[in-house]
């Protein structure tokens, strides 16, 4: 008997608190979180603003290899593909020449596998790109890494065309 009443009481407590003021609790963290969101979704824009006074910055030249900011990966792999190496190496060289600039390498995965494994794999991809940037001349302190796992896909389809876009590490200038 006691068991039932106690369980119901817990349910009611739990439910009560959960619905007490959902709007407040829901909005506060969302509002807090807005700033990083803006940063993440508009890295190109931000870079443009930051470097606007320097008209000759190769980062701004759409014809420069530096306009490419991504390295792509095979399924379940974290080795930078041969065709993307020149891109990563060029950014490594640029960072060497611009010691004041810093980048965040953001590792991503396709949606296959578990979300937690993909979070780990995305980190490994980001680390692989960081390693190549540093080998190419960037200072280790100029490069931070983060993994978004499968949580922030660029393409949303459930097919190889989308997946190949999402197995990616982006070089985001801060």
């Amino acid at each position: 008997m006691k068991k039932i009443s106690f369980s119901l009481l817990l349910i009611s407590l739990l439910s009560a608190c959960a619905s007490d003021k959902p709007a407040d609790v829901a909005q506060a963290p969302a509002a807090e979180a807005q700033q990083p969101a803006a940063q993440e979704t508009a890295p190109a824009q931000q870079t443009a603003q930051a470097t606007a006074p320097v008209a000759t910055d190769a980062l701004e030249d759409p014809n420069s290899i530096l306009s490419k900011r991504s390295a792509f990966f095979d399924f379940d792999k974290s080795v930078v593909k041969e065709e993307d190496k020149p891109v990563v190496q060029a950014h490594g060289q640029y960072l060497k020449e611009h010691a004041d600039r810093t980048v965040e390498v953001q590792g991503n995965c396709d949606e296959r596998g578990s979300s937690e494994y993909n979070l780990a794999l995305g980190q490994r991809r980001a680390d692989a790109v960081k390693k190549m940037l540093v080998v190419s001349g960037a200072g280790a302190k100029q490069v931070t890494t983060v993994s978004f796992g499968e949580e922030k896909p660029r393409a949303t389809g459930h097919n190889e065309a989308a997946w190949s876009q999402n197995r990616r590490a982006d070089i985001a200038y801060k």
Partner: peptide
């Protein structure tokens, strides 16, 4: 409710708490 991904909810054994992962700090 967040504008950032939420992952991996995990119940405390007494059902009173959830542990989880979010990307709100980037």
């Amino acid at each position: 409710t967040l504008k950032h991904p939420i992952m991996s909810p995990s119940w405390s054994p007494d059902g009173s708490h959830l542990a989880y992962v979010t990307f709100e700090q980037g």
